[in-house]
Design a protein around this nucleic acid. Structure first.
Lengths: 231, 231
DNA sequence: TAAAAAGATTGAGCAAGATCAATTGGAATA
DNA sequence: TATTCCAATTGATCTTGCTCAATCTTTTTA
């Protein structure tokens, strides 16, 4: 990763882009005032689970995967981070270390904002804090869904979930699937790579999807949703 | 559940109890001002996953279990709620429905506080908001640990986790284990009741615990922690 | 371009736990 | 106290999905 000069006006202007429309004016100002912009290369870690978190990040450009890992080699992918989204919000409220890792799926441009600056703003402006908190809580709700998926669904349901989830990104990022290895898909579903490969073939045979190299075309949304629902 | 007259001074005074020392003065005032106190009977649901959440709860007296459920019969226990702890904090920040259910393990006394009253307070007082957010974020961090447990540990590690967790409550609530059926323990570990029974016996044979009716005495903390760590 | 490395695919065998069925024990009820 | 009901226990069996090993394909590197 390398730093970018803070007076790169073009970059700052990107805060006007559609994906940032959800930011509140206060948030925009805070980020404008932040001095640090960082560029990550595909494959770089944006955050590492357990590392000290003295700042939060705002994804400006690019895609990343957020995941949890254990001590050995296992990973479980939680979500795809897209432009306009924060990374590490929990650091603001209590956590001094990141609860999860994240890795760049494409080259990424990211703003870093000091935790202390944010806390100061919240102290003076409860409404600003509520806004940040709302974003954070939404992720948290997803975590409950994730937990239920892991607890109650088996292979087919999980892979259907995964395909539907990733497929949502295809509109704005047509090459999402190409960016991912089979193992990445497997880690979203929480099943082994081998099982993923076999099950993808099975889904294709049933006409639910079309495998085209690394790309995957969802052919039958309805039925995939049904499989997801059944678990 | 039945309402209690709001001028039950003895009850209000309990907010001075040690377990409420973590509440900020602002929080105490808010709760003092709340008009609703409710009593739940052992086995009653305090919250039901998916129900509308227009208020949050503060446990005043008693113990409850927080859990997530699927459509059928499966439950997974997340934590034991003890006096001084909030239930449903996420409702304040974004969620209009409860993400989880909770059920009284003993008779419980609970304060209900309207969401709107809290939001108003936060708007005027960012520091108060930060305090609530900190509590909320801590639960969220536990959720990451829970997810990792479910993803990466198997039976032995999970049951060891569960026993160590519940055992923490024994100091202040010596009969915690007696309050729970084997199924409750199983639902904390996320394994079947039958497997729980068999594994408890095995742990006893290895001298890790002593089974005494429903009560369980932890004999070898160190080794249980080792089993937990190994997964 | 050829060789090497990494990822994808496939099939066989295996292990962890769940489910099922039967039995026992304890507590609640008539 | 006898009866009923529900929780706890136990053993046998079954399912899911993982691991392992071999092969094939694609990408990367020399």
């Amino acid at each position: 990763m390398k730093s970018i000069s803070s007076d790169d006006k073009n970059f700052i202007c990107e805060l006007q882009a559609p994906c940032f429309q959800t930011l509140t004016p206060d948030e925009v100002n805070l980020i404008r005032g932040s001095k640090t912009q960082v560029q990550f290369r595909k494959g770089d870690n944006l955050t590492k689970q357990g590392a000290f978190a003295t700042y939060i990040m705002l994804m400006a450009k690019g895609l990343a995967i957020q995941y949890v890992e254990d001590e050995s080699t296992k990973s479980y992918n939680l979500r795809i981070i897209k432009p306009g989204e924060f990374i590490g919000l929990s650091a603001i409220f209590s956590n001094n270390t990141f609860s999860y890792s994240s890795v760049a799926l494409t080259d990424c441009q990211v703003f870093l904002v000091e935790k202390t600056a944010i806390i100061e703003t919240i102290n003076n402006n409860g409404i600003f804090g509520l806004g940040l908190m709302r974003r954070y809580t939404e992720h948290n709700n997803n975590l409950f869904d994730t937990l239920k998926t892991v607890l109650y669904k088996q292979m087919n349901g999980r892979l259907a979930d995964t395909l539907l989830y990733i497929n949502q990104f295809k509109q704005n990022f047509p090459d999402v699937f190409q960016l991912m290895a089979r193992k990445d898909i497997a880690d979203f579903a929480g099943i082994s790579t081998e099982s993923t490969v076999k099950l993808l073939k099975a889904f294709e045979k049933d006409g639910l999807i079309k495998l085209d190299g690394k790309d995957i075309k969802v052919l039958n949304n309805i039925e995939l949703e049904e499989i997801s629902r059944r678990g």
